[in-house]
């Protein structure tokens, strides 16, 4: 029997309400595998607010707190303060929010948590729109995407603003650990969560989680598309620890057009927009490479 590459212990039960091929479900499954039983979750309104199931059912085998949309950051700070007050310091506190609840609505509370550097882990699972309420655009929706609030029709009013770079925003808060992960690489994701939980202070993770329903694609392709997103540079795997960048995976570049056209939400994209987006993504990747080499250089030179 081949050796398992991720922990066998299952803290998420079957019977949840996630759609077919849901990436966010996988994100939660891996995060719980990494964090273990001594964990408290805080979940705002997002897909994961409905996925545990209809009362009295829940698919999570750890305690969780449902919070209003904008308060994930504040609630995890509060949970940590309560744990500190009762002297329980072996419990992991994790905020698990979607991209809308992080990049748009929850950013204020999250910024406050990062500012106070409370000892919590904040995870944003990114399915690139408000999927739970019916695919409305969020700050994390990439250029060109169709959503119900950026309809294409004959007017072509698809998403016009670029994807908000949450990782850069959080890195600018100078918190000890910021990382990105993808559900297509669970070993890397689990390693990052475990690493983050050993560090004291606010940690932020951005997890790429495909949504077959909102992206209008075959649910069986969830993992394939997440892998392709990485190789076409639409998403990059890297971590920022104490200000120094490290890119975890540098796959060979594949065509962005192929990645986009596998998803119904990009079917309408004109050639020039794709080229523009490709240039943008390549530039972002080059910037990452530069930041990584700069970090390496800094590590070599001892502080004067």
């Amino acid at each position: 029997m081949a050796k398992l590459t991720i922990p066998e212990d299952e803290l998420m039960s079957p019977g949840h309400m996630g759609c077919l091929g849901c990436g966010a479900t996988l994100a939660m499954r891996y995060v719980l595998k990494a964090a273990g039983r001594r964990t408290i979750l805080s979940i705002p309104a997002c897909c994961w607010a409905v996925m545990p199931g209809v009362w009295p059912n829940t698919c999570l085998q750890v305690p969780e707190l449902y919070t209003p949309f904008e308060t994930t950051g504040a609630s995890i700070s509060g949970i940590r303060a309560a744990l500190d007050a009762t002297g329980q310091n072996d419990v992991n506190v994790i905020g698990f929010a979607g991209d809308g609840g992080t990049a748009d609505i929850g950013i204020q509370a999250l910024s406050g948590t990062a500012d106070r550097n409370d000892d919590v882990l904040y995870i944003m699972y990114d399915n690139e729109a408000y999927m739970n309420t019916g695919i409305q655009r969020s700050g994390s929706t990439p250029i060109g995407a169709w959503t119900t609030t950026t309809p294409v029709g004959t007017t072509g009013s698809w998403e016009k603003s670029p994807k908000k770079n949450m990782v850069a925003i959080m890195a600018a808060h100078r918190i000890p650990y910021v990382a990105t992960a993808s559900v297509a690489y669970p070993e890397d994701l689990i390693r990052k969560v475990q690493k983050a939980l050993t560090i004291k202070g606010t940690k932020f993770m951005h997890i790429f989680a495909p949504c077959p329903t909102g992206w209008k694609m075959d649910p069986g392709l969830s993992i394939k598309i997440a892998k392709e997103a990485l190789s076409c540079r639409a998403f990059n795997l890297f971590e920022i620890e104490g200000g120094s960048y490290k890119i975890n995976m540098k796959p060979k570049k594949t065509s962005l057009k192929e990645y986009l056209f596998k998803q119904g939400r990009f079917k309408h994209m004109p050639e020039d927009l794709i080229n523009e987006l490709e240039t943008d993504l390549d530039r972002a990747y080059d910037e990452l490479l530069r930041l990584e080499s700069l970090s390496l250089e800094r590590a070599k030179v001892p502080d004067a």
């Binding site: 077919l20 091929g21 849901c22 996988l26």
Partner: peptide
């Protein structure tokens, strides 16, 4: 088993054992 979003695959002697009560048939 690793990629099942519905936790519907268990590790059997001969290979994956499906829990057809919960598998949603996504095809991953």
């Amino acid at each position: 088993w690793k990629f099942c979003p519905d936790v519907s695959i268990s590790l059997g002697e001969e290979g994956p054992i499906y829990d057809y009560d919960h598998c949603k048939g996504c095809g991953i």
